[in-house]
């Protein structure tokens, strides 16, 4: 109790704590007053009281973590080994759901659709966002305006409103075809054609490149000017400067953006649902994994199967994340400058 002395100047008290190898804080709710009121009553140590207070602050989060995240995760793992339709109790079925997944042609199709979507959209988003960020980082004037305007689509891109708009833009008699006709090109029903429907959704996700762009832009501001000047003195051209200075310095942010954009892309739902009217059509060409999971779980009430699908997704995303972190040391550069 004695380490915080009433009259000691603040910095002095903090320094004492630090000198004693402790954090410059401690005490708990009503520490000082309690000590004065009944000095003789055995008290919890300050450490214990701080811990108690901390768990008090954490209580809502802990309830949510156990009740709405960890508990449900375990329950969903259990459900994935059962047959369950919500109306009758779950019935243990061992590995049946997982075995059925291997032979399910619609599941295979949904995996293919999702993988193509992720593999095309994620690199495209990253390249576009980095390119725009590079141009913006040199445009000193009106930067806040540009930044906000390029970010705007990210805010509304996953909304029903924009998905409906997209559906019309790429319809047979939509705006895109009218534009093409104006320059003499024959369009097609982009949304209704199994060959192109998925790519309209890819385009929609690339359209929302704003958030990785803002992260890149923040990183580019941190790159020290003199590094470029030094490289210039050494005779490095713009390409060489980009490859040898910008990319290594941005690699932590590239890592972050690849991880987040990929995880998000795997979970896209609203655009696929709205553009295809919930079917994943035409001919299952926009049947995202998440959309198929929704259909199995909540349209067909096949909740055991949906749970097995969810766990398969978790395993794949977990493996991807682990692989990213495992390879990070080969390509993510944490320089002294950052």
């Amino acid at each position: 109790m004695s380490s915080v002395r009433g009259g000691a100047p603040r910095t002095g008290a903090a320094a004492q704590h630090r000198a004693a190898g402790r954090d410059p804080r401690g005490g708990s709710v009503g520490t000082g007053a309690g000590a004065q009121r009944d000095p003789g009553v055995p008290r919890m140590s300050r450490r214990a009281r701080e811990a108690l207070a901390a768990y008090g602050f954490l209580l809502p989060w802990l309830v949510g973590l156990v009740g709405l995240t960890l508990g449900p995760m375990l329950y969903s793992l259990y459900l994935s080994f059962t047959r369950y339709d919500l109306l009758t109790p779950p019935e243990w079925s061992g590995l049946d759901n997982y075995r059925a997944m291997l032979e399910d042609p619609r599941l295979a199709k949904s995996v293919e659709v999702t993988v193509v979507y992720v593999a095309v959209a994620v690199p495209a988003i990253l390249v576009v966002s980095l390119a725009v960020a590079l141009v913006l980082s040199r445009a000193m004037r009106f930067l806040p305006f540009y930044r906000a305007a390029f970010y705007l689509p990210s805010l509304v891109g996953a909304s029903v409103a924009v998905s409906l708009l997209w559906r019309h833009l790429f319809a047979g008699d939509g705006v895109v075809n009218a534009l093409l006709r104006a320059v003499g090109v024959q369009g097609r029903t982009w949304i209704g054609d199994p060959d192109t429907a998925l790519y309209t959704l890819v385009l929609l996700s690339v359209w929302t490149f704003g958030s990785p762009m803002i992260i890149f832009l923040a990183g580019l501001k941190q790159v020290p000017r003199d590094l470029y000047e030094a490289a210039e003195v050494d005779g490095a051209g713009p390409v060489r400067r980009f490859v040898s200075v910008t990319l290594p310095l941005l690699s932590p942010l590239i890592f972050f953006n690849v991880l987040l954009t990929t995880v998000n892309a795997f979970q896209a739902f609203t655009p696929a649902y709205v553009v295809s009217g919930g079917t994943g059509g035409p001919a299952d060409s926009t049947l995202f994994y998440t959309l198929y999971l929704y259909q199995r779980g909540f349209t067909q009430l096949d909740m055991g199967y949906a749970s097995a699908m969810a766990w398969a997704l978790l395993v794949v995303l977990g493996a991807f994340t682990a692989a990213m972190f495992a390879t990070a040391r080969f390509w993510v550069h944490y320089g002294d400058e950052r």
């Binding site: 709405l68 995240t69 459900l79 779980g297 969810a310 997704l313």
Partner: peptide
């Protein structure tokens, strides 16, 4: 991924 918890 939120899919893991939506069913339970």
């Amino acid at each position: 991924p939120y899919q893991v918890t939506i069913v339970p």
